[in-house]
Amino acid sequence: MPKLNAQQSNTLSSLTSTSLSAGLTGQGLLPKITLKQLAIFVSIYQTGSTSAASEQLHLSQSAVSSALSELEERLTMPLFERIGRRLHKNENAHAIYTQAQAILGQCSALEQYHSYQAGRIHLGASTTIGNNVMPSLIQQLYTQMPDAQVTAFIGNTQDVVDQVEQLTVDLGLVEGKPRATDTKVIEQRAWRTDKLVVFAKKDSQWLAGMQPTLIQNQTDNADSQHYVYQVTPEQLSGLPLLVREPGSGTRQVIDEQLLQFIPQANVMMAVQQSEAVRNMVKADIGIGCLSQYVIDSELKQGSLVAIEVEGIDLQRVWWAIWHKDSFKSKLWQHFATQLGI
């Protein structure tokens, strides 16, 4: 015969306010059966006495006896025959025991589900963040909380916003600022800054005749240098430009901080993935514009070269977003603290 486990005993014995309806009469709702009463009854049924049940549940014997009497009164039937100080199960007890075990088992499953969910977090990230920054964030989270269960969704900014709105992503990291209509249900917090870089293949046909400037970088460990081409907006407008697709955070910045100053820009192609833009530029199909995180290693190696556009600043803010009504578990709060939000 199954035993009442410690989790059921300790947790359910404290649920004095949780109850189940015992039925209806012409007078209205009957007094209610509590989960605590059911847990006490199960313990008495299994141990055979109120004294043993009180020890198992860490309750006084009078509290156990009182709960049993209340349960019998509310069921309007006796469950035990009292002969001296001994309790003998009657014919009603087994049927009630079976139902009580089922109810307590379901409650235990609910508690375990809550604990399971509290150790999970579903993160979302737009593609630049998801491919270049998210892995280190998740690794740091696992280092601090090895038992955390993390799943990740990666799409463009609008895809992540949509997932947050639908409460399928607990916390999203995006490159574009959510639209005004999104903020009705979404909280947003500035998280990190980034810079977009216009770039081309080294010795690109599109830069023929232009002279680069040698830039010397001083770091803590060593000096490095790289070439930067400087162009005017008018010069850039004559070059074929490869950009991200509408809905991406990168495209939002390109539209708002670059293309509005170059109305005659030659947007050759809109591409869905940053890596595809980078590889097309490497093939010298056109000029690209992506986050510094995506092309940093190629710029340092010299296979790609940066292009500075006179008078145009492509700095941007990355945003952390979440649904206003989402449940913020301890794991959620820990990750938010890790992000500095």
Rank of each mutant, 00 (worst) to 15 (best):
residue 1 M to S: 02
residue 14 S to H: 09
residue 28 G to K: 01
residue 37 Q to G: 04
residue 44 I to V: 11
residue 50 T to A: 07
residue 52 A to Y: 01
residue 53 A to W: 01
residue 55 E to P: 04
residue 55 E to H: 10
residue 56 Q to V: 14
residue 56 Q to K: 11
residue 57 L to S: 04
residue 65 S to L: 03
residue 66 S to D: 10
residue 77 M to E: 06
residue 81 E to K: 07
residue 81 E to C: 02
residue 83 I to V: 14
residue 85 R to D: 15
residue 86 R to H: 08
residue 90 N to Y: 03
residue 92 N to V: 02
residue 92 N to C: 04
residue 97 Y to T: 01
residue 97 Y to S: 04
residue 105 G to T: 12
residue 105 G to C: 08
residue 108 S to H: 15
residue 111 E to M: 04
residue 111 E to V: 11
residue 112 Q to V: 11
residue 123 L to A: 06
residue 131 N to W: 10
residue 131 N to V: 09
residue 133 V to H: 07
residue 133 V to W: 10
residue 133 V to L: 14
residue 133 V to C: 10
residue 134 M to G: 06
residue 136 S to T: 14
residue 143 T to K: 14
residue 146 P to D: 02
residue 152 A to D: 07
residue 155 G to Y: 15
residue 156 N to D: 15
residue 159 D to M: 12
residue 163 Q to D: 07
residue 165 E to T: 12
residue 169 V to C: 04
residue 173 L to A: 02
residue 180 A to P: 03
residue 183 T to Y: 05
residue 186 I to V: 05
residue 193 T to C: 03
residue 194 D to M: 14
residue 194 D to Y: 09
residue 194 D to Q: 14
residue 199 F to S: 01
residue 205 Q to W: 05
residue 207 L to H: 15
residue 213 T to P: 00
residue 213 T to F: 06
residue 214 L to N: 10
residue 218 Q to N: 10
residue 229 Y to R: 08
residue 231 V to D: 09
residue 234 E to I: 05
residue 237 S to Q: 05
residue 238 G to A: 14
residue 239 L to W: 09
residue 245 E to G: 06
residue 245 E to N: 08
residue 251 R to F: 13
residue 251 R to T: 15
residue 255 D to F: 06
residue 257 Q to F: 08
residue 257 Q to N: 08
residue 258 L to G: 01
residue 260 Q to M: 06
residue 261 F to M: 13
residue 267 V to R: 01
residue 269 M to W: 04
residue 270 A to I: 07
residue 270 A to R: 13
residue 271 V to P: 05
residue 272 Q to K: 03
residue 273 Q to S: 10
residue 273 Q to N: 11
residue 277 V to N: 01
residue 278 R to M: 15
residue 282 K to H: 07
residue 283 A to H: 02
residue 285 I to D: 06
residue 287 I to L: 02
residue 289 C to G: 01
residue 289 C to M: 02
residue 290 L to P: 00
residue 291 S to G: 08
residue 292 Q to S: 10
residue 292 Q to C: 13
residue 292 Q to K: 13
residue 294 V to H: 03
residue 294 V to T: 07
residue 298 E to R: 05
residue 298 E to G: 03
residue 300 K to R: 11
residue 301 Q to S: 09
residue 303 S to Q: 00
residue 303 S to N: 04
residue 306 A to Q: 09
residue 309 V to F: 12
residue 314 L to C: 08
residue 316 R to Q: 13
residue 316 R to A: 12
residue 318 W to C: 12
residue 327 F to K: 09
residue 328 K to M: 15
residue 331 L to I: 02
residue 339 L to N: 00
residue 340 G to N: 00
residue 340 G to V: 00
